[in-house]
Amino acid sequence: MTKKLKILSVISTICMIPLLLGGALVTKTGSADGCGNSWPLCEGQFLPTEISFEMFIELSHRGVTGIVGLLIVYLTYLVWKELRHNNEVVFLAFSALSLMILQALIGAAAVVWGQSDFALATHFGISLVCFAAVFLLMLQLFEIDKKLHTEDIHIKKNHRIEIYAISIYTMCVVYSGALVRHTDSNLACRDWPLCVNNSSFGISDYNFYQWVQMGHRLAAGLLFIWTIILTVRMVKHYKNSKVFYWSWWITLGLITLQVLFGALIIFTSLNLMVALFHALFITCYFGMLSFFMHLSFRTKRREKKQISRTKTFK
């Protein structure tokens, strides 16, 4: 059964990526109203006779959401049936299921009632956390099957705190990026990395869209620098742990690609494929951070158990 669970978790994780990218595609192509204000039907029909481009994008996204939702429901059922004794696995499975339902409801509410740009920006963030839960569940299942060796990784307290901090900060950067997309501020500044031509009189002359764009760039730049510093520190202290060591190098590579494709969005005047890759890399980057958080929480629990045992012996 573990093999079946592993295969299903891999499929679910892979399918989460087009789900996330599909949401970005809906926004970037202006397809959010492709089915009008009808949900789960489209223009009040199961399958409209005349399908426009925007309607096709919206219907495709809803279809992928439904398929991924069913996969996660089945995966959660199997986890509860076979591994209910493992609290970590059960928690991740039900977290993924709950978040999947939540992001679907937010998407439905946006279609039926409409929401502000600030509220819509949270939709991608929730989907990102859902992806992280599914991704961690997959890794946990591989660990149970002795295919991934992370049991011996012990992360120091100061490093754990920094991992938590950069993960929380990353969510803020993700929110600012989603806000750029939902407020149509992508090309508010056609220069990079600064916003020179758009504001010849200085920062005080920025309009709202330029503030949104430049705020995101600043936040992303700080995240890039922070990741470089943290990666150097982590590979230095944990070079004996191959999984942890190479995971940090992968994480640094992902944030580097994220920054490069963010710049390419401006240079290519919002090329659709470039924008989707931009969303893909931040998704994978956050997935890696969630892996580090998971190991940090595990280390903390292990330390508490050791302290408890020491007190018992005394």
Rank of each mutant, 00 (worst) to 15 (best):
K6D: 00
S9G: 00
V10N: 10
L20T: 09
G23A: 08
G30Y: 06
G30Q: 13
A32H: 09
G36V: 04
G36A: 08
L41A: 06
E43S: 15
F46C: 05
P48R: 05
P48G: 03
E50T: 13
S52L: 12
M55S: 09
M55Y: 06
F56A: 12
S60R: 08
H61Y: 10
G63S: 12
V64Q: 04
T65V: 14
I67H: 05
G69P: 02
L70T: 08
L71H: 01
I72P: 02
V73M: 13
V73G: 03
L78V: 00
K81S: 04
E82R: 08
E82Q: 02
E82V: 01
L83R: 09
H85Q: 10
F91R: 12
L92E: 01
F94W: 08
F94M: 04
S95Q: 09
L99R: 04
M100E: 14
A108L: 14
V112N: 11
W113V: 03
L120M: 14
T122K: 05
T122Q: 11
H123L: 00
H123A: 05
I126P: 01
I126K: 05
I126Y: 01
C130I: 03
F131C: 09
V134G: 04
Q140Y: 09
L141I: 14
L141M: 02
F142Y: 11
E143F: 07
K147R: 14
K147W: 06
L148Q: 06
H149D: 13
T150L: 11
I153Q: 07
I153P: 07
I155K: 05
K156F: 14
N158Y: 14
N158K: 15
H159W: 05
H159F: 08
R160N: 00
I163D: 00
A165L: 15
C172F: 15
V174K: 02
G177S: 08
A178T: 02
H182F: 07
D184H: 14
A188N: 06
D191Q: 03
W192E: 01
P193V: 12
P193M: 13
S200Q: 12
F201C: 02
D205Y: 15
Y209I: 05
H216T: 05
L218G: 04
F224D: 09
F224M: 14
I225F: 12
W226L: 11
T227G: 13
V232H: 13
V235E: 06
K236I: 11
N240K: 15
K242N: 10
K242Q: 07
V243C: 04
T251C: 12
T251W: 02
L252H: 09
G253Y: 01
L260T: 05
F261S: 02
F261M: 07
I266E: 00
S269A: 15
N271L: 03
V274F: 00
V274A: 02
V274I: 09
L280T: 01
L280E: 00
I282F: 05
I282S: 05
T283A: 15
C284M: 12
Y285S: 03
Y285C: 01
F286Y: 12
F286E: 06
G287K: 01
F291M: 06
M293P: 04
M293C: 14
R298L: 06
K300N: 04
R301N: 02
K304N: 10
I307F: 13
I307Q: 15
S308A: 13
S308F: 15
T310L: 11
F313S: 13
